[in-house]
């Protein structure tokens, strides 16, 4: 509810601000009022978002628990293909990479918990994702040795990401 009200106030402030600022010369008083409305909207929106994230974490339908589950699944699947034939690795890795994209999208709300924490997690995750992308390319090109090396790197990086996610106290 807070987030919705926040969004409405933010939009109203933006429309008002854009109109008053568009006049030649701008209506500075009108712009100031609009900015105040936007400010209230931003405050409510951020509060609402934080509460939403905590609720999701408690119910287990989103937040850290969901991220944990997504990563664990990806790690288990990679474990199974570490020594699998090349064709099977390419096929399975294509699907795993698509699902990891979902992890990245679902991790966005973690920003609310602090950008440093979010940045650290995504930095490790992305390094692993890039390693898996390289593994995919190498396998697709027929360079199996390089492929296996980077598959292993990606696997290790995802495990490190999982540890960082588990360490979160949301």
């Amino acid at each position: 509810m807070k987030k919705l009200v926040g969004n409405v106030l933010l939009t109203a402030g933006l429309i008002g601000g854009a109109i008053t600022a568009a006049r030649i010369p701008p209506m500075w008083g009108g712009l100031a009022v609009s900015l105040a409305i936007m400010g209230a909207g931003i405050f409510l929106r951020r509060q609402g978002e934080k509460e939403e994230l905590h609720r999701a974490a408690q119910s287990g339908t989103g937040g850290v628990k969901e991220l944990d589950a997504l990563l664990t699944d990806a790690i288990n699947r990679i474990e199974k293909i570490l020594d699998a034939p090349r064709e099977e690795v390419v096929k399975e890795l294509t699907k795993i990479l698509e699902e990891l994209d979902e992890f990245a999208e679902k991790a966005q709300p973690l920003r609310i918990e602090g950008l440093m924490t979010y940045g650290n997690i995504m930095s490790i995750f992305s390094r692993g994702e890039r390693a898996l992308n390289r593994a995919w390319s190498a396998f697709a090109d027929g360079y199996e040795e390089e492929g296996r090396k980077y598959l292993r790197y990606g696997y290790e990086d995802l495990k490190e990401t999982l540890s960082a996610v588990k360490a979160l106290k949301v």
Partner: peptide, 28 residues
């Protein structure tokens, strides 16, 4: 040069980017 418009737009863009929606000021 419409410097006043740049300033007014700059203030609005700054506020929008503080909304928690990444890059909102730039997008608008």
């Amino acid at each position: 040069v419409p410097v006043d418009k740049f300033i007014a737009g700059g203030i609005l863009g700054f506020a929008l980017s503080m909304s928690g929606i990444p890059g909102l000021g730039v997008l608008v």
